[in-house]
């Protein structure tokens, strides 16, 4: 019940402590150049991209064309169909994010509020472990284990029952190997869920218990408190998780490239293949060293991808940053 009286806590002894100050100054001098390293690294990457790419290509129609054309014999006639790659990225990352968000909301809610402490903690450890698995492992799992099952069993079954739904029908031949939108979305979802779950769980756990008690004291049930108060207070964290997850999904190359099919097309169904910006970067990197035009396109792809992921990471930063601010305001009296 001891409440800190601000008048009493206000003034600490004002005697200067030179050694501590010196140490602080030294740390500042050492620390500030170190703090610049991430910024310098980012600038270096951007500079490298700008200097080795052809930025005028970004303004040309053949970068934004809707058909891909690359004939090494006629590099002048190349058309890069960037919108198709972007669309493939948006479809796979967007759908994966939708499923991952729903799944990790459910997981995070049960981890924080419903499961007994020991079970919640071990599940949380497990999700964190999953987050550490290299993406190529997911890719191989998807490609070697899931793709045949998708191609031979799951997709024909889905098609036979759900063909009346848009994007659930489509030509059988296009989906034969099992790789494509459906598998890529599944793999990406599995990959993002640990990340988004961890962030959502943290932001739910950070909601002050006093706020939860205020809701319970008004006669709200556990679930009503979760839905109406806890999620609302933590909504910045949830948004941050969504943006970070999207950034990860957009930037993920190896696993997606292995299972997305690789066709440069607007996928006519969820079974058919498409491709992503990251997959293009991954797979054309070696060829790009042989063909200057391909290298320019590749670098410009990389530049746009960098901007997109930076943008979403920025949104995530902003969202989680402001969550802190809201926490302070709501805790004005805490």
């Amino acid at each position: 019940m001891a409440t800190a009286d601000p008048a009493l806590a206000a003034s600490p002894p004002a005697s200067p402590t030179p050694p501590a100050w010196d140490r602080y100054k030294l740390l500042t001098w050492l620390g500030s150049p170190l703090a610049l390293i991430p910024l310098l690294a980012l600038l270096a990457v951007a500079l490298a991209i700008v200097s080795s790419g052809d930025l005028t290509l970004l303004l040309r129609g053949d970068f934004w064309s809707l058909t891909f054309n690359w004939n090494p014999l006629y590099p002048d006639q190349a058309a890069w169909a960037f919108p198709l790659y972007l669309l493939g990225t948006a479809i796979t990352a967007g759908l994966a994010l939708l499923f991952a968000t729903l799944l990790s909301l459910a997981l995070a809610i049960s981890l924080t509020a419903y499961l007994p402490g020991w079970l919640g903690r071990s599940l949380a450890t497990l999700t964190n472990l999953l987050a550490g698995i290299p993406s190529v492992v997911y890719g191989i799992w998807g490609y070697v284990v899931l793709a045949p099952y998708f191609g031979l069993t799951l997709q024909p079954t889905l098609r036979s029952y759900l063909a009346w739904l848009p994007f659930f029908g489509g030509p059988a031949a296009a989906a034969a190997p099992g790789t494509g939108v459906l598998l890529a979305v599944l793999i990406l979802t599995v990959m993002i869920v640990p990340l988004t779950t961890a962030i959502i769980r943290d932001s739910l756990a950070n909601v002050p218990s006093a706020v939860l008690e205020a809701s319970l004291a008004l006669g709200a049930t556990q679930w009503e408190t979760m839905r109406r108060v806890r999620l609302r207070v933590a909504r910045r964290g949830v948004m941050g998780a969504v943006f970070l997850g999207f950034g990860r999904a957009v930037g993920e190359s190896v696993a997606v490239a292995m299972v997305v099919g690789g066709q440069t097309q607007i996928p006519p169904s969820i079974y058919s293949g498409t491709t992503t910006v990251s997959a293009f970067l991954l797979y054309q990197q070696d060829s790009a060293f042989q063909y200057a035009a391909l290298l320019h396109a590749l670098v410009d792809f990389a530049l746009v991808l960098l901007l997109i992921t930076l943008f979403f990471n920025f949104l995530a930063q902003r969202a989680t940053g402001e969550r802190g601010a809201v926490g302070q305001t709501s805790a004005a009296g805490l």
Partner: peptide, 17 residues
Amino acid sequence: QVRRRIGMVFQRPIVFP
């Protein structure tokens, strides 16, 4: 039901966002 009949106000004002 008990908490609806017997309301509570806490030490620190907890308003919802």
